[in-house]
Design a protein around this nucleic acid. Structure first.
Lengths: 231, 231
DNA sequence: ATATAATGTGTATTTTTTACACTAAGTAAT
DNA sequence: ATTACTTAGTGTAAAAAATACACATTATAT
């Protein structure tokens, strides 16, 4: 792709809001653009959908090409279709989000040179973004905030083994409010989707906490069913 | 538009799932197509987005042109982007939904002759639909079912004045389950968004029920705020 | 007057949510 | 080994919300 978009009738693109949780902070994945427009600006990983691929497939491919992250399952959350959202023509973009585990810190290395780099940036410290990507990010953040209030999806962001305090901090960061420790634990344990391990946290200079795992089977059973309204 | 779509790179379209409630039945608005492909088939009202209009605007325009309904506010709920969803080329469609009041029975009269007619059809009695419109309808139905479980949006479907029994029936139809009369009333009245009127139902051959109105101010106050997680 | 059909109402029980504070355990420094 | 420090871990009472359940009342039609 050159510096100027070809003249086109209409173009679909995908933009990805990928959430990660690291060092107690909620982060998203940004790229630095290496092409006009907005060259050298920060942006959500996003690019144009090919003619012969589904949008779900495109989302996966584009995320890979711009960040090096492979096989990330994403959900679509909103489509942005204002006429002038792209300075060079009509581009309607379908926004996807995912919450992923940063443990092991998969390497970020753009495959395409449309991005010069890909970096995790704390959501509380975002730079100015290209296009309408701030709006897209906000809507994505809203989406996970809403979703976490009816499905305990937070575990997707945590390492496989985690402490209850880590889980609580994550909730607090997403919901942007303090939660009560005892009530939080009661509620989480009551769901019955946490498995207590025989292990403890290591490398902390204070009393080590018990580690837990999510029980995916029970999670699926509990939350894939219909939402109920009582009798 | 001719019988064969022009060769195109990519086309956006809009499809609308418009819910109405009439004679105790939940219905959606369908058109009979007057053009190939799927000529003479039933379909959701849907058409192609123009170059110079936002998708929200396109949704309103398209609904008007195909059904005669004007100024209906719709929300987007999903974008369908499988490669072969349209037999003649790549068409990505953004699906919108709305819930509207059928009282006064606005006339349905397609403006464009892309549709030969527009009709309300009960959701429990849908014919086979063009394209992947059955999938789109299902997702839209899921959407309102989910939404009604956390926001009492049902009033958008009811006439201005309604009885509690009518409201309950509507919930039952959307949720596809029987609800308990006393509990339902308690819950609804507790929201504090219903205004009891000094009027009664008319024209029924049994004891007439009190009429209620939704109090839009209180509704907005109550449900436009953030969803909470407690302390 | 009677039959009919839907309205309208209360209570007890269970479950869920909320508020709230101290002791226990491990680590680090002396 | 004592002490200081920091976080882990725990229970209970009260309030609010959800559930289960049945019958007398009212308007209309005959």
């Amino acid at each position: 792709m050159g510096t100027i978009l070809p003249k086109f009738d209409s173009v679909f693109s995908i933009d990805c809001v990928i959430f990660g949780f690291d060092e107690g902070e909620l982060k998203i994945l940004l790229i630095e653009r290496n092409e006009e427009p907005f060259k050298n600006w920060w942006a959500l990983p996003g690019y144009i959908v090919e003619q012969d691929e589904s949008i779900d497939h495109a989302a996966e491919r584009i995320l890979y090409e711009l960040t090096g992250l492979r096989g990330i399952y994403m959900d679509q959350f909103y489509t942005f279709g204002d006429v002038n959202r792209h300075p060079q023509g009509r581009v309607i973009t379908v926004a996807y989000y995912a919450m992923i585990r940063l443990s092991g810190s998969k390497e970020l290395k753009p495959v395409s040179n449309y991005a010069s780099k890909a970096v995790w940036i704390p959501v509380n410290d975002l730079p100015k973004l290209a296009f309408d990507h701030e709006k897209i990010f906000s809507k994505g953040f809203e989406k996970i905030r809403h979703k976490i209030s009816y499905q305990p999806i937070a575990f997707e962001l945590l390492p496989e083994k985690f402490t209850l305090t880590q889980l609580q901090h994550l909730y607090e960061v997403i919901l942007n409010k303090k939660l009560d420790k005892r009530n939080f634990r009661k509620k989480m344990l009551n769901y019955g989707i946490l498995k207590e391990l025989d292990e403890k946290q290591k490398g902390v200079s204070y009393r080590a906490a018990k580690l837990y795992k999510f029980d995916k089977r029970k999670y699926t059973k509990l939350f894939q069913k219909e939402i109920t309204f009582g009798k």
